[in-house]
Structures are given as C-alpha cells and as structure tokens.
Design a protein around this nucleic acid. Structure first.
Lengths: 216, 216
DNA sequence: GGCAGCTCGGGCAAATTTCCCAAGCCGGAT
DNA sequence: ATCCGGCTTGGGAAATTTGCCCGAGCTGCC
C-alpha cells in the first residue's frame, strides 16, 4: 500500500516542452513533499512511464502534438483505474474540461493559476479528491447555467449542418446538398449558435473541432 | 558600459502564466550567470518593468492575452533601441518568426527547445548576436524555399486580426482590443478573406489553424 | 520627388443574421 | 385517443454585416 504521508507524493510530468517540464519539476520539488519521478513528452511515453514508475499523480498538458492528451488519459485510466491524473493546461473551455473529466481526469488546473494553487491541486488529487482551479470552477458554473454549450443537445440535422459548415461549406452548398432552402439552413445556423452559446462563426468551428466533429 | 562578464546577465521574464514564469526563473537562475530581475504578465507591465530595471535581455512569450507580444516588442524597441529581446514561445510559424524579427526581436526560441539551447540563446542575445533555435532555423529555411503560404501575403495587422478572429473574438472585441473602429476591423476581415481566397469564415478559421496561427 | 504598400476609416447597396412565428410530423406520456 | 413536446421546414422584418469603392496619412524605397 502507499505510504504517501511518509514518502511524499511521486509525480509523473507530461508536457511536450522540455524547458516547461524542467521548470515545473523545480517548482514542484521545491515543495519538499513532491517528487518528480519521471517525465514524458507524448501520450505513448506517458503510459510506459506510468507503468514503470507507478506515480501517485500524473500531471499532464492535454495540448500535445499528435495524439490527444484526452487519449492519454483514457489510455492510462483504462489500464490503471487507480491512476490520479491532473490536467494542467492553458486551455479553459468548458467542453474541454468536461471531456477531460469524463475521460477520467481527477483534476483540471489552468496555467494561469498561481503555483500554490497547482501544488495544492496535486496534493488534493493524491488524496483521491477532485480538484480544479478557481477559473475552471467558474467556467463550469457558467456553463452549467447557460443551458449547455456542448453539442449533445443538437438534433441530427443540426449536427449535419454544423459539420458541413465547420468543414468550410457555404450556406448555398449546404442547402443544395441537403435539399433545403437557403433560409432553412440560415435558421439552423442561427439555432446552432444559440444552442451552443457560440457568439461567432469562428467559435462554432472551434467547437466542432474540439468535439471531434471536424478535423483540421 | 555593461560589464556582463563580471556581473552576469539580467533578465526580464514576460509570460502570462505565473507558474511558467516561476519555472523559467528557477531554470535560468540555476545557471549562475543569469539573474531574473523582474517579471511581467502583459505587454504594458513589460515596458514599465523594462524601464525600471533596464535588463540585459527580455525573454517574452508573444502569445499573451490582450495586446499582442509583437506590439510589446515594438514598444520596447521604439523607446530603447539597445534592448535585446528574445522571443520564447510555443508557436513556430514562419510568418510569426519573421514578424517578430522585423518588430525588433533579437532572437526566437521555441518552447520545444532544450533548456540548454534556451540559455545559450539568452547569452547570444546578451552579446548582441542574433539567435534562434534549430527548429526555427529549419522552418525559416523551408519557408524561404517554398512559394509561400497563404498567410505570407498578409500584413502584420491582418495577421493579428486573423489570429484574434480565428481564436473566437468578436469584431467588437478585436476593435476594442486593438483600438480600432469596428468598421476598420470589418474591412480587414473582408481584405483577409479576399487575399487568402477564403469564401467563408469557417474556411478562414481552418486556414489559420492549419498555418499554426491558432490552435484548436 | 514619386511610387508602392500598409493602415485606418467613410459610404452604400446587397446580403446575411437575428429573432419571432406557423405548420407538419412523430414519439411518448396521460 | 389526445395532448405535449421536440424536430424539421420555412416565411417575415428589422438590425447588422458584407462586399466593394473610395480617400488620406504614413513609411520605405528607387
């Protein structure tokens, strides 16, 4: 069994920027009870490092090139349900946060957070608690009040139109393709925006991309 | 005159993430000859900190919220042509690199670089030399050979507006942010579309994403 | 000096967006 | 059976934006 109180907390650092990792390592190790036992710069290495060192907490940035960080979370959790994973990234969109938690993350902290908040989150996660930084809590709270900004509240037609739109199709092209009037497509477009809470077409495209509806 | 060899190199750190700054600070200070004399988390503070401490080198991330980092470079260089600025960011798009250098940066290093390469770049820049990481040199080399991407035909202002737009900002937000009239931003928006050949806002977002201008 | 290119914005017709509304259809609840 | 609610399809009208033209200031370059 783990003797965390006696031995401190072992941490696996996953981030694709070497100097960022080294900086974090120094910040964490200056705490005394936190020990970085391994590092990785991609999703695949993250899992092998996890297997090899069995750290108490995995601190990882989801925005890595190549395989998604979400993939890494799912990967680790699928094989080691005991794993505690703290997402540490600069992104702060509600969809991403929810995706991370449902992929199995135990915590979500933005890089805008104070170092003290980050180490506090690591300790919480190590104790098996859920942790998130204040800004993330705020964003999730707003999101839950705004009747949802995810796309699981969209109908099939709406999804299809959003996919084509985010793929770069014009309103006319979509209308022709689906045998609808331009007016109807315009109405869907508006409906999708209000349903998802996107204020801008660009936000819509980003939403579609982050939800895996379109690839870019 | 500066007695760098005797006193070491003083550094101003500019990055909007506190823990990232703290990490860098520790990495740099462990070198012995590098001293972080000030930090800033936005373009405005960066210049006042520069005035107050007159550091040998400014290490800054261009991707800060609010005013562009390019703006900050221009700002500092306009008032203190002696300033040495090392851009240190995760972006690695040729357009951005060229924009940074023409704004007055002395060096450009990506966060993918080894810490040793970063500190080497700081020392080079302090000596008045130009510095860039290997991956940046590679990208610039490729770029000079290729016929040029769609973004190459855009001016700096256009790039900045495209970045913010593709990031999800509304026209009003961009205008407020850059102190422009809404009409001017609309005109730039239209200009960018015609220059790049994008027929749709969604296509514009995709273009910005594939060129690395924005991350999704 | 002159030309070219970037930046900044006005103007105005045409197009789109933003809402509100109605009607048909269908599945589930009463 | 009936009613409710949600999806799909579109009309309408006001508000906004787009598309494109223009001029003016500024810089850098020949």
């Amino acid at each position: 069994m783990n003797e965390i109180a006696a031995t401190g907390i072992s941490v696996l650092l996953v981030d694709d920027h070497p100097i960022v990792r080294q900086g974090y390592r120094r910040v964490l190790e200056s705490q005394g009870d936190l020990h970085v036992v391994a590092e990785a710069d991609n999703a695949a290495d993250a899992y092998s490092a996890f297997k090899a060192r069995d750290p108490d907490v995995v601190v990882l940035d989801i925005s890595m090139p190549g395989a998604s960080g979400l993939e890494a979370i799912r990967n680790i959790r699928a094989r080691s349900p005991r794993a505690r994973i703290l997402v540490f990234t600069m992104h702060n969109e509600a969809v991403l946060v929810k995706a991370a938690f449902s992929a199995g993350a135990s915590g979500f902290v933005t890089k805008s957070s104070e170092p003290s908040a980050v180490v506090a989150a690591i300790r919480s996660v190590a104790r098996g608690e859920r942790a998130m930084s204040d800004d993330i809590a705020h964003i999730l709270a707003e999101d839950s009040l705004s009747a949802g900004s995810a796309l699981d509240q969209l109908g099939e037609r709406e999804i299809e139109i959003l996919r084509q739109f985010a793929g770069g199709a014009t309103t006319e092209q979509i209308a022709a393709h689906l045998n609808l009037s331009v007016k109807t497509v315009q109405n869907y477009h508006y409906l999708i925006k209000t349903k998802t809470g996107a204020r801008t077409d660009a936000q819509l495209v980003r939403l579609a991309a982050t939800c895996g509806l379109t690839r870019i």
